[in-house]
Simulated assay, not measured.
Amino acid sequence: MTGTHSRVAVVTGGSGGIGRAVAERLAADDMSVVVHYAGNAGRADEAVKAITERGGSATVASADIADPDQVRQLFDETERHFGGVDVVVNTAGIMLLSPLVELDLADFDRMHRTNVRGTFVLSQEAARRLRPGGALINFSSTVVKLALPSYTAYAATKGAVDAMTLILAKELRGRDITVNAVAPGPTATPLFLEGKDQQTIDHLATLPPLERLGRPEDIAETVAFLAGPARWINGQTVYANGGVA
């Protein structure tokens, strides 16, 4: 182990948006954090700097989460650096919106590769490596329940994440490892805000009874709960959406 940090977390997509908020929140809980990124090393370095400046322990790692060899290397590097893996949070994902009849199948395949295959590959390796008392937290989406037009393909990928998560929780019987998914509602991240006009954003902010968009920190609180004290929540999709659905 490094220093006084006894638990180790890998956060995919940890360089920005919800992923960065999760990485910083887990570090605040005295976890050593591996901030994973796919393409933007600079933002990942910024996330690590923000953590270490507050006295936390963090490092960066790059991998294509849909590539089993690169994911194995990610876990190997984490174990070499910190001694093991206790928490895996898979926030990495892409969202490409279009009505079903107009969707370019290349976009469908891109989303499937990251959101479904990536979650599957990462879950495989997490199931092999997580220590007793560990937690795997995947990312679903409230749009699976809301059934919003133009979200067909994206919601389909997140429905697949739900299925994998719930079944894997049962397959890990006897391991003392929890497996859950977090399903954010409308959350003010670059991924969510991109391509939306202000009128649309304002409308979405009125949907929850709390009458605002979620913040990345709201989602990070839910992840921290599942990653730490919530040992009796297992095989669940937790909707963190302010009551929108």
Rank of each mutant, 00 (worst) to 15 (best):
G14R: 03
I167F: 08
A63K: 02
I177M: 03
D86V: 02
I137V: 15
R7E: 01
T142S: 15
T4Y: 05
L96F: 12
K196P: 15
L103I: 15
K158A: 08
R175E: 12
L103V: 15
P209F: 15
A127W: 13
A27G: 04
A41Q: 14
L146A: 13
E125Q: 14
G243Q: 11
V101I: 15
K49F: 13
A230M: 10
L96A: 06
Q199R: 15
G42M: 08
N180V: 02
E211L: 13
A160W: 12
Y154H: 02
E221C: 04
A106Q: 12
D109T: 10
N234D: 13
I219D: 05
W232S: 06
F82P: 05
F120G: 00
S62F: 04
A240Y: 02
A220I: 01
L148V: 10
P149I: 07
H5M: 03
P190A: 00
T4W: 06
M1Y: 08
E53S: 11
T59D: 07
E217T: 14
G19Y: 05
T78H: 04
R7P: 10
V179K: 07
K49S: 11
T178L: 07
L213G: 02
H81S: 15
L146F: 07
I65T: 05
M164R: 06
L193C: 05
K49M: 08
R113A: 01
L148G: 01
R128Y: 04
A9G: 06
F139K: 08
S57N: 07
K158E: 12
H203P: 01
N241V: 00
P149S: 10
D69A: 14
E221F: 09
L97F: 10
H5W: 00
K170I: 00
A63N: 03
D176V: 04
P229E: 08
V85M: 11
P229R: 13
A28M: 00
R110M: 07
T222E: 02
A58L: 12
S123Q: 15
G133C: 08
P216S: 04
A21T: 06
F192Q: 06
P190R: 01
L226T: 14
G195R: 06
L210A: 12
L210P: 00
K170G: 00
I18E: 01
R7L: 02
L122T: 10
V33G: 12
V89N: 05
V60S: 11
R128E: 13
P99L: 11
H203W: 13
R173E: 14
V101N: 05
I219H: 14
G235V: 10
P184Q: 02
R231D: 03
N234Q: 03
T4P: 03
A28N: 04
A127K: 05
S15T: 02
L210V: 15
D107K: 10
T237E: 04
V22A: 01
R173L: 12
D64Y: 04
V223I: 15
V85F: 13
V161Q: 09
A21H: 06
A220T: 08
A66C: 01
F192V: 03
A163V: 14
A153E: 12
N138Q: 12
A160N: 07
L226I: 12
A63V: 06
D109L: 09
D76Y: 09
G185K: 00
V244Q: 04
T187V: 05
L204N: 01
E125R: 15
L204C: 03
G243F: 07
S32L: 05
